[in-house]
């Protein structure tokens, strides 16, 4: 297991490095000067360029870029959106609402999806299954911002229970969380439906498997057989669907953050590309990739924990 983990970790670091390099080269080679402000004197511009090594060849810039990140977590400075501010600090200042939003919608989506999927599988072709399957189709096919708008209408206008927008001046976490409740729900519906759909399919297949039959012929009750033999086996393929889902949540939050005016990461990326704040764009791309890679890493590890065929096969 240790060897398997280390190998996964190594692969992840290599991928991370490639992504970092790619984002650097693609963004920095774009024909757009970082300083296009006519109000800044050319001498000052040149001074600033020298300070940020922008007057040197790309290879040298690449070296400084990597060295900065590895030795002192220095991703450069924002020049347009938050002039002069360290990119790393810009990201940190934006992390909290985004993370709260994404993390809690996942926390909501996973158990909801598992419960709904299990109910649907066990009640196959009866009304609970039909109802769940119907909802699943709606939640998967309708994009999250539509639910965002609907929830806003219902719970802030018709029944004013929650605030319409993110409360940036909230004094406590509780207050902030309250203003994030609606976007969390809007973001969670799609992933919950995806999990429910996959789990239903997997469970139905395992429920029809021979080993479940064997579990019952050896004298286990139906519940014992399902819990001990069907459930864990069905989780193996489900873990795989989590990767696109988590990145999906990150992507979904780009729009949802806009609708609920959450000062998160999502808007920042789009804005930085539009205005050409290259240092910030690169750093944000790296950030998003890191999230995805960490997810993949966690899923890979949990694979090994769930399925001995992967774990032991990997040790050979």
């Amino acid at each position: 297991m240790l060897k398997y983990t280390l190998r996964r970790w190594g692969a992840m670091m290599l991928t991370m490095f490639i992504i970092m390099s790619l984002s650097f080269w693609i963004i920095r080679l774009m024909p757009q000067s970082i300083f296009e402000n006519p109000e800044v004197a050319p001498e000052i511009q040149r001074l600033l360029e020298a300070e940020m090594h922008l007057d040197k060849p790309m290879w040298v810039q690449y070296y400084y870029f990597l060295r900065g990140i590895i030795t002192e977590r220095d991703f450069g400075r924002s020049v347009k959106l938050r002039p002069g501010m360290e990119v790393f600090k810009v990201i940190v200042s934006r992390i909290k609402p985004s993370m709260v939003l994404n993390f809690f919608s996942l926390i909501l989506a996973i158990p909801a999806g598992i419960i709904l999927g299990t109910i649907a599988a066990l009640q196959r072709n009866k009304w609970p299954d039909n109802l769940i399957s119907f909802l699943v189709v709606i939640f998967i096919s309708v994009p999250s911002f539509v639910f965002g708008a609907v929830l806003q209408y219902l719970f802030t206008f018709k029944f004013p229970i929650f605030p319409t927008l993110y409360n940036a001046s909230a004094s406590s976490f509780r207050e902030m969380f309250r203003s994030l409740t609606l976007p969390i729900i809007a973001l969670a519906l799609g992933p919950a439906a995806t999990i429910a759909r996959y789990l239903r399919g997997e469970l139905i297949e395992t429920l029809n498997s021979e080993f479940l039959l064997l579990a019952r012929t050896k004298g286990l009750t139906r519940t014992q057989a399902v819990v001990r033999h069907a459930f864990r086996n069905s989780l193996v393929p489900i873990a795989n669907t989590m990767i696109p889902m988590i990145t999906g949540i990150m992507g979904g939050s780009l729009v949802i953050e806009r609708i609920f005016a959450v000062p998160g990461m999502g808007g920042q990326l789009v804005e930085s590309i539009v205005v050409g704040d290259h240092f910030l764009t690169v750093a944000l791309l790296i950030w998003y990739s890191a999230i995805s890679l960490i997810t993949i890493f966690i899923v890979d590890i949990s694979y090994g924990l769930i399925d001995p065929r992967i774990r032991i096969g990997g040790e050979k």
Partner: peptide, 19 residues
């Protein structure tokens, strides 16, 4: 089941829980 009547399956490959 199991206590009075036992059953041996056709395909031992799929009759055992793989994990």
């Amino acid at each position: 089941r199991g206590k009075r009547i036992g059953l041996i399956f056709q395909d031992p490959l799929s009759a055992l829980n793989p994990i």
